[in-house]
Amino acid sequence: MKQTRKLAFIAIFTAIMMVLGYLESLLPVSPVPGIKLGLANSVLILSLYWLGVPISFQIMIVKNVLLGLFLGNPMLIPYSLAGGTLSLTLMSILYRRRGISPVGVGIAGGVAHNIGQVALAMIILQTPSLVFYLGLLMPAGAVMGFITGTVAKILSRHFPLQKAFPIRITTQTEEHKP
């Protein structure tokens, strides 16, 4: 039963993230490429707290690859994966630390996403001067991360799944195996 519920949650989280990513792609093009809300990150932050680090990485990778194919931008998938990996790595390090709320996790994640993408662009295009672009992207990433983190915080308060679903699902189900 628990395994089934976990699987259902993984599927729902992935689906919600893909829908949010798709909806954002419909917004008017920003004059500054690279700046976006990244609302799907709210769901990923929740997934960190509820489903743990390894599952969150799986969700992030599946979401980015599928959405890249879905939106017809397969050339850009490596960029979203670079941003997503750096972002989720940093968020995984921070999310259980004392004195850090989902808001701080969101800010760090948003900024790390920008850094990951720009770093890959610097390598692929061999254009080191792109680093200065981060001077503009990082404050934007912090604002967007503040919003996504706050959304994650509000969601976790209104859907206190932790009660039904104590944090480490993987270890729990393993203990209950006959």
């Binding site: 921070l94 630390r97 004392r98 709320s101 808001v103 001067s129 981060l134 503009l136 990082m138």
Partner: peptide, 25 residues
């Protein structure tokens, strides 16, 4: 916002400002 959230924010803003000031003119 907790205390360390603010530290993260401060680090980001300082780094951004430094890059902004060093950008090509």
């Amino acid at each position: 916002m907790k205390r360390r959230d603010l530290i993260i924010l401060a680090v980001v803003l300082v780094a951004s400002l430094a890059l902004y000031l060093l950008r090509p003119q």
